[in-house]
Computed example of a mutant assay.
Amino acid sequence: MIWLRALVAILHREALRFVGQRGRLVAALVRPLVWLFIFAAGFRAALGLSIIPPYQTYITYETYIVPGLLGMICLFNGMQSSLSLVYDREMGSMRLLLTAPLPRWWLLFSKLLAGTLVSVLQCLLFLGIAALWGVRPPAVGYVAVLPAILLAGLMLGALGLMLSSVIRQLENFAGVMNFVIFPMFFLSSALYPLWKMKEGSPFLAQLCSFNPFTHAVEAIRFALYGQLNLPALGWTVLAFAIFAAAAVRGYDPARGMQAKKA
């Protein structure tokens, strides 16, 4: 089937690119490991944690931030994959891909899935390192968390795909990444519970609750402990649908945003 062949070809191309860019794997792991090994040690005494779901007892700060750091990996990789789309468009290979005799949404989804699978691999490697550091969720969590990571990666990758559809130059996209990544990451439950944020600023806590990254992190957190957080999953799916629809529209030369800039 031609659709499946196209998907396999795009997955193969992304795998070759990932293998050829070994520094990309190292960079993807260095960021969360710095938070786990260094920042967590400093925040452990300053940030007290109460017993909150899905945890059944008091936990260390390192244990709390691991789901958030998994989300960080998906967030940075989703943006980096979209950055490669802007590069491919400048080089002309993206235009060649989108002229294939297949629905545009399928080609974009294949590209999105390829980048997300890379995120899943990076997350698994990080979980292995975290286990060596002493952060070990239940064994069932290592399996249950895979769909949550995949969904989070798809949602964040679709966000990057949407941004790449409206930003035409590589330099501009690299700058916009910082304005997207850091507010999404810090205005979330990745580093601190929302109740802790609410103590300091109810307004910021409200912003965190509207942040789709917060819901992606909470879906990962609960899945890592073998539990299902339906509201978090629902909001993550909704955000993915919105971002993906906007990306498909943006890459449509007849209706999309790029046509307006032409």
Rank of each mutant, 00 (worst) to 15 (best):
E90W: 13
S82W: 10
V86T: 05
C123Q: 00
S110I: 03
I129L: 12
L127W: 10
S110D: 00
M91V: 04
V86Y: 09
L96D: 10
D88G: 08
S93R: 09
G134P: 05
R95I: 15
N77L: 14
S93L: 12
T116P: 05
R89C: 11
L113G: 01
G128H: 06
V86G: 07
S84W: 13
F76H: 12
S110Y: 03
S93T: 15
S81M: 15
L113K: 04
L102E: 07
M94E: 12
L113Y: 04
R104L: 12
W133H: 02
S110L: 01
L113Q: 00
S93I: 15
T99C: 12
Q122M: 06
S119Q: 05
K111N: 11
L107V: 03
L75H: 07
L127Y: 01
Q122N: 02
A114E: 03
L108Y: 10
T116G: 01
W106V: 14
L124Q: 08
C123W: 07
V118R: 02
S84G: 13
Q122P: 01
V120A: 11
M79Y: 08
C74M: 10
G78I: 02
L125M: 09
L85A: 09
L117R: 08
F109K: 00
N77D: 09
Q80C: 06
K111Y: 10
I73W: 05
D88Y: 15
A131K: 02
V120T: 00
M94V: 11
L75D: 01
Q80T: 13
L113D: 01
F76L: 14
M79S: 02
S119E: 04
G78D: 09
W105E: 04
S110T: 00
L97N: 06
L102Y: 05
I73T: 09
R104W: 04
L112N: 02
L132Y: 03
C123L: 07
L96H: 13
